[in-house]
Simulated assay, not measured.
Amino acid sequence: MTATVATAPLQSPTVSAVPASVATPREGDERLVCLTDAAGEKLRALIAREGKGEFLRVAISGGGCNGLSYKLRFVPAPKAGDILVRSAGVAVLVDSKTALYLRGTELDYSAKLIAGGFRFSNPNAKASCSCGESFSV
């Protein structure tokens, strides 16, 4: 005796073309990093002009006159582990290692011909160079 088993036709699994999810950063506040109104205004203009991304990444790396230097760049999306701070109308991303050195820092901008540009005021720095681009802790 043979048994007949009804089977449903095999269906191939649906594969959706969903792009890899963008990392969701932790929300921070201006106690980590604060932009002055002048810095925010200049950065918003640069973000619009450059078109490289709507986030400002602030990082600290080894180098410079005093051992550590600030790096600024525009990026299109956060990375895993980033902290997002909204200040002066700008979305600022900081990685967790940089956050250790940056806490309480203010970023200002001056349009002066001499000593103009972006300037960091970091309460954690024991020494910094005259150009304001590097510091030591």
Rank of each mutant, 00 (worst) to 15 (best):
G62W: 00
Y70R: 05
A115Y: 06
R44W: 13
P19K: 14
R103Y: 01
A111T: 09
S61T: 14
V92A: 11
L32M: 05
K71W: 08
N124L: 05
V94Q: 10
K42T: 12
E54I: 08
N124G: 01
L10C: 15
L93N: 12
S16Q: 15
N124I: 00
D82M: 04
D95N: 15
T24V: 15
V90W: 14
I60G: 03
S130M: 09
S128T: 07
L107W: 08
V94G: 08
T24G: 10
G81K: 10
A99V: 02
N66T: 00
G63A: 06
A23P: 08
A99W: 06
T36S: 14
E30D: 01
T4M: 01
G64Q: 06
C131K: 02
T14D: 15
L10Q: 15
S128D: 08
E50Y: 13
T98Y: 05
A99D: 03
I47A: 10
G51R: 14
L107M: 12
A3T: 13
V137C: 01
I47T: 11
R31N: 03
G62K: 03
A99Y: 04
G28Y: 02
A127I: 00
G51N: 14
P25F: 05
A20I: 09
T14F: 13
L107F: 08
L10W: 14
